[in-house]
Design a protein around this nucleic acid. Sequence first.
DNA 1: CAAATTTTTGTACGCTCATACAATTTTTTA
DNA 2: TAAAAAATTGTATGAGCGTACAAAAATTTG
Lengths: 202, 202
Amino acid sequence: MKRSIEDIRRQELIEGAYRAFLQHGIDGLTTARICKEAGMSPGILSYYFKSKDEVLFWMVRHANRVIMDEVAKRMKAAPNRWERLLAIIEGNFPKSLFEQNTANAWLSFYVASARDPQLERLQRLFHRRLASNISSCVSGIVSRADLPGFVETVAVLIDGCWLHRAAIHSQTTSAGAIALITNQVEQLLGATGISAMKKPAK
Amino acid sequence: MKRSIEDIRRQELIEGAYRAFLQHGIDGLTTARICKEAGMSPGILSYYFKSKDEVLFWMVRHANRVIMDEVAKRMKAAPNRWERLLAIIEGNFPKSLFEQNTANAWLSFYVASARDPQLERLQRLFHRRLASNISSCVSGIVSRADLPGFVETVAVLIDGCWLHRAAIHSQTTSAGAIALITNQVEQLLGATGISAMKKPAK
DNA sequence: CAAATTTTTGTACGCTCATACAATTTTTTA
DNA sequence: TAAAAAATTGTATGAGCGTACAAAAATTTG
């Protein structure tokens, strides 16, 4: 009962913050805006949260989960490692999210995470997960020595495409970004590497 | 006389803003901090500039010129198109600038440019210059159809490496970023393309 | 239903900041 | 050198913000 209403309100505020985040980025998030977006009165935030930063923290986790769900959904349906790698790439560019406001919002989170230790920890966690996912797809295909470089290259490409979507007024679509990255990955792995990955594992 | 002192003060303020920018990013720039960094009293800014945003505008131009000078210097010494392409890549990662604070500062500029039309225009200008530079190196080597994709890929890689330097606590050095990008470019152009570019042009 | 408790509202406080400007100092002019 | 102009200082003003909290409303309890 008490537990329940508290959880509900907290969740509503987090989701309100998420919607405001997508539109205005982290800097555009004010306590008033968050509360308004959640349909509550301005003072309520400090009743359910210790501070605005705490809402931000949970909001970012929520935002990341949205993307990770896209990745997980596609990975589940992937029959082999090559398809799993594609699932990672494609899952990082959901059509409905790959537009300028959202890209800018994510970018603003990157900037904020440089000065907020809490957000920085999240940032690292997200990156570790991505790196681990990529690694598991190509272990054995890419040599142990080349693995870190391969992983970093893919990560750089993914983040770079988001950055370009945000800042350069490039009309790149979700499909365009996926094609760009896939093309680079194909060159790195080579035809033999890819066909090896296509053998249904497990 | 009047002209001279005015230009000097404006330049000092712009350079003060630049130093503060490198350390604290765009959001950390306050009028007081800019004036202090320039060794002047806090009110002076509104005497020599219409607003803080005007200082920001000129500061960003200044900051970009620092990078462009690095590129230009290297291009001048390049005997052929392949070396010119390397000059562009290397010039975008000056050793003294490729560290976290500076990378974050640039990132914060990208974010700010999404909401400030003046900064957005600069952003586009910078990108056009980069794209044009890259194009001129590989025209004739990369087919006309593949050219936009090639240019975008290189641009994404450059920006992506800066983003990673800023946000992911990657220990990537300047040399590491250059190697990563060069490696990708070599794969795209192939051995025959590169050797064609190495013939001394002009 | 009355008292106690929880939830919500609206606002006031303190802080940071950009900007404008009156007062002061420095430099130029005649 | 005295008057005028230019340059600089320091501060006041007002806006936007996060947070705390007293008062009010809603809900639960006995």
